[in-house]
Simulated assay, not measured.
Amino acid sequence: MPESEDPKKVTNNDLRNAQFGGGFINADTVNAQRIGGDIWNLFLGQQLAPVGNPQREHNQRLLLADVKQEVASRLKQSLHNVVLINLGKESQPQQVKRLWDAEVKIGLKPPEPIPDTTRIIDVFDSVDVAGKLLILGAPGSGKTTTQLELAQALVKRAEEQPDCPVPVLFNLSSWKDDRQSITDWLLAELKSKYGVSKKLSKEWVNNHQLLPLLDGLDELEPQRQELCVSIINQFLGSENRPLYLVVCSRSEEYSNYSAQLQLNGAIYLQPLTNNQISDYLTTIKYTKIWSSISSDLDLLELVKTPFLITFHEVIQDGNNFFHAFQIPSNKYSFSS
């Protein structure tokens, strides 16, 4: 079919009668830009402006704007939206296998607590980690939120410094083909999620202009998780190996793998402390809840999980709080 007759072709950003995902686009409600020949940034009535230093390539500034909006939107849905809690972190270098460990014969380095004031960007930038980090934790411990906080700091850095790579969020649960390399998967995800052409994505990956942040390793089918670790390690050892890479996983699943990620460092997110819980409840004006749960060891242990401490999203009063966690509400009393 001649190009002029192909209804799927989009020229000069004219979306009238164009097809996308098998359906027709209404050009009156959708704005779009293009990157590398593909439709880019499809929003209902909204078009993101490029962000960052104008010295950076225009297409990368468009991607940076998209990632910035995604990070901000997802953080609004987390505990971060109410009060930022700097989660406790423990360095666990024994959870990764650095490439030089085979040559340098050293004993297993035990876990070490990281100072409370240390931010995740400080861990990422540390000499030992050098931008290749594994984030571990129990279910609901704040792994994804911690990765989003890191992404936020990296976006800010990329906006200010045009030579810094663009951080991009990926979820490993979409890795469906056991034979697909991480490089090919990244190119496919950049096209499907952000609308970046594979040609341009490949150029960025090869030139180390992207900083992949991988979440959801434990969301893969159990029998495929360890295989994914091996595929990631192949990526880390390839000719186009990334300068920086961050991976998130539940610690229980990860500890069962015979293979370890070939990253430079790993941290384990600690449960909330009593002071953090008390400060959080004071901030959201639920001090009476703290006076009730602080004397109950079972309940106190429950709310040390950051995911469960997001009271502002699950309670309107004491009874709803206990219902959300299947705790008998008649055990406690609240007054407004």
Rank of each mutant, 00 (worst) to 15 (best):
E90P: 14
S329Y: 11
N26E: 08
L213N: 00
A138K: 12
I39Q: 10
K191L: 12
P139V: 07
Q95R: 15
S201E: 03
L263Y: 12
L210F: 05
P139Y: 01
E226L: 13
P212S: 03
A138S: 12
G107P: 06
T29D: 09
G22R: 14
L64H: 01
A49S: 12
L210Q: 07
P93K: 11
N320T: 07
R157N: 08
G21P: 04
S201H: 04
Q46S: 02
Q60P: 02
E149H: 03
L243N: 15
S181N: 07
S4Q: 07
V123I: 04
E203T: 04
A259G: 05
Q77I: 02
P212E: 02
P7G: 05
V303K: 10
A72Y: 01
A138D: 12
L302C: 11
G22V: 00
V247H: 10
I293D: 11
Q19Y: 14
L217F: 12
S91Y: 15
I182H: 10
Q262S: 11
G142Q: 07
A158Q: 04
Q19T: 09
N17G: 03
L308E: 07
G318I: 01
K109W: 15
G265Q: 01
D298V: 11
N206L: 06
N59P: 13
S126Q: 06
F124S: 13
K8S: 09
R119D: 07
N233E: 03
L213T: 00
L169S: 06
D184S: 05
V30T: 05
F307H: 05
L281Y: 13
T273E: 09
L186N: 03
R98P: 15
W175C: 01
G37L: 04
D38M: 05
W40A: 12
K76D: 04
S249T: 10
K8A: 01
